[in-house]
Amino acid sequence: MAPSRVIILGVAVVTAIGAGYVAKRMSTPPPPVVIDNRASEPAIRLEEVLVLDGDVPMGAVVGDQLAWQSWPSDNIADGFITRESDPTALDELQGAIARVPMYEGEPLRRFKLIGEGQSFMSSILPAGKRAVATRIAADTSAGGFILPNDFVDVIMTRRSTTDGGGGAADGFVTETILKNIRVLAIDQAIQEDEEGRRVRVGDTATLELTPQQAEIITVAQQMADRLTLALRAVVDTQEVVEDEGDYLVSGQGRRGTVRMIKSGEVSEVGAGK
């Protein structure tokens, strides 16, 4: 047989074998796809935490603003209420009162609620502080722009006499007797209204005071013709106060100077004069 015929025959055989292999591969069905319908466990373990389902203002009842929400177990901090540890908490805490403002999505903590049998005002007072009310009006409270959680100075204005024997008034003395005092409430309001209005003219301001300051303002209320609240700027609320009207309750002489207004003229006199 001629060599060329042998080569052609070999090529034909190889081509036939290749075509048969390809045909066999195409006719073989693909392997079946196995679907696992079993639910796989999440990679992160979750627990249900009691959270606020809406905003709750300070002093308001929590009510139905509560819901269970899934949280990663590693992100649950001390104080969070979980369904595993306290399954009845959602029903039990609906009648609780908020000690501070709380907001939607926030995990509920018991220390932000008023304890059973406690009054609201006593529960929001820091340790060692006292709540003292003083009468105010629009012209003695920055035109009504003072609101709860603002800080104020208390200014006392009283008549002065020159004969020292209770004679006729000869002018007025004015001085700041308390500084950087937090306002707890205006009348019965302990925060801004829901519309965010910044003006509220009340009759009574409740102030957060130390026991010494409570005595000072009590004496001042008896001897003053007028007590005025002066609103402080937010940047001034960190000021450390060193001088107040301690002389009103200490029995000692006056410290510093006082401003006297007499016949339209302003003058300063030394303490104790």
Rank of each mutant, 00 (worst) to 15 (best):
E208D: 10
G202P: 01
L227N: 09
A220P: 05
D246L: 09
E215N: 10
I181N: 04
R232A: 01
M223C: 10
T237K: 09
T157W: 07
D187W: 01
E194D: 11
Y247M: 12
G165S: 13
D246M: 11
R182E: 11
V235K: 13
R182G: 01
T237V: 14
Q191Y: 00
V249Y: 15
V183R: 03
D187L: 05
V241S: 07
N180D: 00
T210R: 13
L227C: 12
T228N: 06
Q212M: 15
L207Y: 02
G167S: 03
F172R: 14
T204A: 05
I186K: 01
G202V: 02
G245Q: 06
R232H: 00
G165W: 14
L178F: 05
V241D: 13
I190G: 01
E194A: 10
E215I: 06
A224F: 03
E175R: 15
P211S: 12
E242C: 06
V241H: 04
A168Q: 13
T174C: 09
V234E: 12
G196K: 04
T176W: 04
D203R: 09
T210I: 07
R182A: 02
V183T: 01
V183K: 01
A233S: 08
I216P: 03
L229C: 02
L184Y: 03
V199K: 09
T157L: 10
G245I: 15
L209Q: 10
D163I: 06
N180R: 05
D243G: 12
F172C: 00
T157F: 06
A220H: 07
E175H: 12
E175V: 01
I190T: 13
D246T: 14
Q238S: 08
G202H: 00
A233R: 10
R232L: 01
R182Q: 04
G164Y: 02
S250V: 04
L227F: 00
D170N: 11
G166A: 12
R232N: 03
T176C: 08
E208W: 01
R158E: 10
Q212V: 15
G245N: 13
V199S: 05
D187C: 07
R232V: 00
D163V: 05
I217K: 11
A230Y: 00
L229E: 00
